[in-house]
Design a binder for these strands. Sequence first.
DNA 1: CAGTGGATCGTCT
DNA 2: GACGATCCACTGG
Length: 205
Amino acid sequence: MMISTLERTVLCKAFFTREDVLQIARDLLGKVLVTNFNRKITSGVIVETEAYAGVTDKASHAYSCRNTPRTAVMFGEGGVAYVYLCYGIHSLFNVVTNISGVPHAVLIRGIKPIDGIPVMLSRSGKNKRDENFGNGPGKVSKILGIHYSHTGKSLLKKDVNDQINVWLEDRGIKIPSGSIISTPRIGVDYAGEDARLPYRFFYRQ
DNA sequence: CAGTGGATCGTCT
DNA sequence: GACGATCCACTGG
């Protein structure tokens, strides 16, 4: 596949440390989530996100300052991955945002695959892509090769093996704010009135 | 199509 | 010991 080299910028720390997690969730639409595991580069345009607003948000794992071994990475500085196991089966990938001590995060719920589609198909166990390929937070991690053991990984800095495995790029895709739709988040019925907050974002393609 | 239920296990109580 | 920030297969209409 042809990969454009024009307008390709890796998102830097300042993008993630901003305080408005709803704005970051909107801004992530159209950005490209890229992974490089075992020299296999795979990526997709982010098409759906959900914001989780930390200690005041009943739907957040960090609600009420709940700082546990699992949620601790959200309490660190923005720009790292929070990946956790859901339903015993799925790894769900979140981008940690805000400054240290404010456990905000954005769940990536859907991507439109771009680079390394054969690899992603193979990871998904499918022979051909259908309309749901990359659609769903469990599937995002699965096709990009992200595992819950990757939680805490920096999206900015090289690790001890001198590599970044997961990062975000701006490839110049602009999503008009008018085409962004917000709805309540999925699967958070336990969150009481916060389940109704319009913190899920996607756009018409 | 909508609705239902099983899979499967780390995490927290 | 209970429960998911899910997915898929399977049902029935």
